[in-house]
Amino acid sequence: MKRKFPIRLSILAALILFASAFYYLPFYVSKPGMAKELEPIIKVEGGYEEEGNFMLTTVRMGRANIYAYLIAQFSKYQEIYPVEEIRAEDETDKEYTIRQLHMMDNSKTAAIEVAYKKAGIPVEYDFKGVYVLRVLPDMPAEGKLKPGDHVFEVDGNPFASANDFIDYVSSKKAGDIVKLSFKRNGKTMDTEIPLKAFDDGSGKAGVGIQLVDDKEIKVEPDVTVESEEIGGPSAGLMFSLEIYNQLTKEDLTKGYDIAGTGTISPDGTVGRIGGIQQKIVAADKAGAELFFAPFEKGAKDSNYEEALEAAKDIDTKMKIIPIDTFDEAVAYLEKMKKKTS
């Protein structure tokens, strides 16, 4: 009888430990992810091959249980963030994931546009509507639309961009009803939603959704980017470099393994990203020899400065290169000498 008590106590303790692994704290933990070669996931039809590699770098981000939280407290290149710093107010995990994936899609589209225009190849768009990224709480769309819904008509009329949709709805007043046609899981649906005034003092009314354009870029030769479940916009710069390199005869890699990070705008501007020190760690582990970092026009505490700090700390031989634009990155690579064995 006495032996049963310790056994039961051990089982109870094991159950508590198991259950605690599934209890999430109000924090996210980020850690170094991977540096992934881009040539296998980006294919330009009939594109040129390269001797070296362009690599995207990632950060692993996830909700923290008690174990992940404690480990991060004692790990130099793991960061802890309160939920409100990662997700918008009242944003669910599902909405956050959808937002990250659509940001990635927009990043790919911008990268294709930048690369093809640099190569002197025309670019066209086929606009298909908007995706709902988030439904704001206590607004009329709550319970009628969901993140991921694809809205393609308002009051029976198609629209040419997310801005056109916003302008049309904003031209109406609180209490007016708009009819939205949308697709959810392949099924076409309609809903009527009354407009409600925003509480920001603007006097404007809306249905209460955050949205993003759904547009297909049309280029020739064709290009595919298989980013799988990678989310966020930070791979934009490296996407554009890989695509451009496959479009042009000269191999910009010159035989080097080149990593980097930064958002890309359609005009070629490279923007700040999060987690750059963790990406430096990931790139160094993957054997990268060069790393492009957003310079932010020399701003204090820029991504470039943060990258230099991490590079010095881990004593990497990887060279950190500051850039503000896609053109600057290309110019640097064009002047670089070819790697010798």
Rank of each mutant, 00 (worst) to 15 (best):
136 L>Y: 15
288 A>Q: 06
201 G>Q: 13
127 F>D: 09
302 S>M: 05
14 A>P: 00
68 A>F: 08
28 Y>F: 15
14 A>T: 12
26 P>I: 03
336 M>C: 04
177 I>Q: 08
171 S>L: 01
81 Y>H: 14
96 Y>V: 02
111 A>C: 07
137 P>T: 09
336 M>P: 06
30 S>W: 00
250 E>M: 03
233 P>Y: 06
162 A>L: 04
150 H>F: 14
210 Q>E: 12
338 K>T: 13
166 I>P: 02
249 K>I: 09
72 A>M: 10
124 E>Q: 12
211 L>E: 08
95 E>N: 02
269 T>P: 00
113 E>W: 06
307 A>G: 02
223 V>Q: 10
266 P>S: 01
220 E>D: 14
306 E>H: 11
144 K>R: 13
122 P>V: 06
42 I>T: 09
206 G>W: 12
40 P>S: 07
10 S>N: 01
15 L>Q: 01
282 A>H: 05
277 Q>W: 05
284 D>C: 03
206 G>E: 04
114 V>H: 05
253 T>N: 07
114 V>A: 05
96 Y>F: 15
218 K>C: 03
336 M>H: 09
135 V>Q: 12
109 T>D: 08
252 L>N: 05
211 L>M: 15
162 A>N: 13
268 G>R: 10
41 I>P: 00
129 G>H: 11
218 K>L: 15
215 K>Y: 06
309 E>H: 07
84 E>I: 12
202 S>F: 13
328 E>T: 06
232 G>D: 04
138 D>A: 13
234 S>N: 10
65 N>R: 06
211 L>I: 15
86 I>Q: 11
175 G>Y: 11
241 L>G: 08
197 A>W: 05
221 P>I: 03
92 T>F: 13
221 P>F: 05
63 R>D: 08
312 K>Q: 13
198 F>V: 01
192 E>D: 11
1 M>D: 05
95 E>F: 07
243 I>M: 06
213 D>R: 11
63 R>A: 14
305 E>L: 13
290 L>M: 11
225 V>E: 04
81 Y>Q: 05
75 S>W: 10
327 D>P: 01
99 R>F: 06
223 V>L: 06
102 H>W: 14
305 E>P: 00
11 I>A: 04
146 K>C: 00
208 G>F: 03
75 S>H: 07
245 N>Y: 07
108 K>L: 09
34 M>C: 02
128 K>R: 15
327 D>I: 01
116 Y>M: 00
24 Y>A: 03
59 V>G: 06
174 A>L: 04
280 I>M: 07
17 L>W: 09
35 A>D: 10
309 E>W: 10
112 I>L: 13
81 Y>P: 01
307 A>R: 03
8 R>C: 13
78 Q>V: 00
174 A>S: 15
5 F>Y: 14
252 L>F: 08
200 D>C: 08
315 D>H: 13
272 R>D: 12
329 A>E: 11
29 V>F: 01
146 K>R: 14
199 D>V: 10
294 P>M: 08
121 I>S: 01
207 V>R: 01
100 Q>R: 13
324 D>Y: 08
59 V>C: 03
213 D>I: 10
177 I>C: 01
21 A>P: 00
240 S>F: 08
104 M>V: 03
248 T>Q: 11
73 Q>R: 15
116 Y>C: 01
91 E>L: 08
